[in-house]
Design a protein around this nucleic acid. Structure first.
Length: 490
RNA sequence: GGGCCGUUAGCUCAGUUGGCAGAGCACCGGCCUUUUAAGCCGGGUGCCGCUGGUUCGAUCCCAGCACGGCCCA
């Protein structure tokens, strides 16, 4: 039947209900229990005991299936994630309420009251003796057996995806559990959660292209933040010793299975730590959260088994490129030979400086091959504009990137707290940036802040969406973001 | 930006070597007071993504476009 006809039929039912004095959208319903509670209480009872004691139940939910039997019928009521069968009989409910029952469609919300029972086949059910319509649905729900598969509808109308596909609800519960776990761990280790500007007059803290916007009253161009980094470090100047922010970043770049223009980042900073101490803490944090959420330190991701069991390997980038990426060792110090070798392997490094080239090679040749967590350290200085350098190795940053399941999951370093050094590095970045990233201004206000003194510190950023992908075995970032950006349909 | 694939009923999907468009679920009518993917009988689903072209005739072939997916950049 055409969609318009299906809608017409339900609108007609709605009109009939209203003209017979029934409010199809009442204000409230006093709920006394849930399906989960009822199952917990009575699932184990024998039918005879239920018959004798006839415990009462009053609850509400959505009708998700109906099986009519003339002057009786069965239906499945869903609330939370659980379903409970309703048994509706005209002789129990009365003629008037049964007539209402016959107007109920799959998708409607109802409130019911009745006695707990078990059917012949032993299914816990409620023998309904009072029925209240709580909300009339006008559109048909997706099909009950195959669910909703059309990816476009799943993303554009996520509510239908959640409605039809229980595993999608699980994914987003896992997402919430991960975020809860991260906060709990940080909170219990003396970190305080802060909120810093998402609209910034000068953007920074990462190498990326920003979104721009404008404040009318101030007549001020602003950037959506690409990272909270520089504001969080201002807070270290201000005397906070451990801070974190878990919120959205915005990058005006491509969309892929790994990239959404807005994504969720956890960044935190700890005074008096260096990058080594931060790696220790990152291991502890992630292992704890994964174990809490997944129930094990091992998990399956896209056909591979990832073990988060500590300790995690730590190797310098040069070793990673040679041993994992297969880069001939003698090319590492020969910029042009390395460039030719990489271009031959379709790594786009034509216009990159040596340091960014190594970083690009890391992403292309090493990252996809990493299964269990691996810290790659000693990243080139020029690709790391906020990292301190390794003592006696001015070309190498005290920085690590964390890879896992073929994804880049985190990135951290010993923070530059020497204002003179920071200015030089920001100026250097303007020259040596990757070709697709616009020039960034030196953030004078940030340099000014550093001049008041910032304690030695280490910081890290975690891509939360990717962590959720790992924990839920999701192949695309769109499967872990409730409303991923899609091109609007005209 | 490029390549490949997809778009058919509300949902899940068939299909047509180019000749009236199909199934299951859902829906509507009838029967049915312990079913559970209830069952039985009957019924209609539609801009075959959009715009052009080729053709006597296009859902099918061709081109362009839109949206989506995967891969590459």
């Amino acid at each position: 039947m055409a969609e318009a006809d299906l809608l017409d039929i339900r609108r007609k039912k709605l009109d009939e209900l209203e003209s017979s004095g029934i409010d199809p959208y009442p204000r409230r319903f006093e709920v006394e229990t849930t399906v989960a509670t009822l199952r917990g209480l009575y699932e184990s009872w024998e039918e005879e005991r239920l018959q004798e004691e006839e415990p009462r139940a009053r609850l509400a939910g959505r009708i998700v299936a109906q099986r009519g039997h003339g002057k009786a019928g069965f239906a499945d009521l869903e609330n939370g994630d659980q379903r409970l069968q309703l048994y509706v009989r005209q002789d129990v409910l009365g003629e008037e309420a049964f007539a209402l029952w016959q107007q109920i469609d799959v998708g409607d919300f109802v409130g019911i009251e009745g006695a707990m029972m078990k059917t012949r086949s032993g299914e816990l059910s409620v023998r309904v003796d009072a029925l209240t319509l709580l909300s009339k649905a006008l559109r048909p729900l997706p099909e009950k057996w195959h669910g909703l598969k059309d990816t476009e509808i799943r993303y554009r109308q996520r509510y239908l995806d959640l409605l039809a596909n229980p595993e999608v609800r699980e994914t987003f519960k896992t997402r919430a559990a991960i975020i809860r776990g991260l906060r709990a761990h940080l909170d219990s280790h003396g970190f305080i959660e802060v909120e810093t500007p998402m609209m910034q007059p000068v953007y920074g803290g990462a190498v990326a292209r920003p979104f721009t916007t404008h404040h009318n009253t101030l007549d001020l161009d602003l950037y959506m933040r690409i990272a909270p980094e520089l504001y969080l470090k201002r807070l270290l100047v201000g005397g906070f010793q451990r801070v974190y922010e878990l919120n959205r970043n915005f990058r005006n770049e491509g969309i892929s299975t790994l990239h959404n223009p807005e994504f969720t980042m956890l960044e935190f900073y700890a005074a008096y730590w260096d990058y080594g101490r931060m790696m220790d803490f990152a291991e502890e944090l992630l292992t704890t959260v994964i174990e809490t959420v997944v129930g094990s330190v091992d998990l399956e991701f896209q056909g591979q088994t990832i073990s988060f069991k500590r300790p995690w390997a730590r190797i310098p980038i040069t070793q990673a490129l040679v041993e994992i990426g297969g880069v001939p060792e003698e090319l590492l110090s020969d910029t042009e030979a390395l460039r030719a070798w990489l271009v031959e392997r379709k790594v786009p490094v034509e216009e990159m400086s040596h340091g960014y080239m190594l970083d690009a090679a890391l992403g292309r040749l090493v990252q996809p091959q990493v299964t269990s967590p691996l810290f790659v350290t000693h990243v080139p200085r020029e690709a790391s504009p906020f990292s301190k350098t390794v003592p006696d190795e001015p070309e190498v940053a005290e920085r690590f990137e964390l890879f896992c399941g073929g994804l880049e999951v985190a990135n951290g370093y010993s923070e530059i707290n020497d204002s003179r050094e920071q200015r030089l590095r920001m100026e250097e970045m303007a020259v040596n940036r990757p070709p697709d990233v616009p020039a960034m201004d030196v953030d004078e206000d940030y340099i000014h802040a550093l001049e008041y003194g910032m304690p030695p510190a280490a910081g890290i950023g975690f891509g939360i969406d990717r962590l959720v992908m790992l924990a839920t075995d999701s192949a695309s970032i769109r499967d872990v973001i409730l409303f991923p950006l899609l091109r609007p349909k005209s």
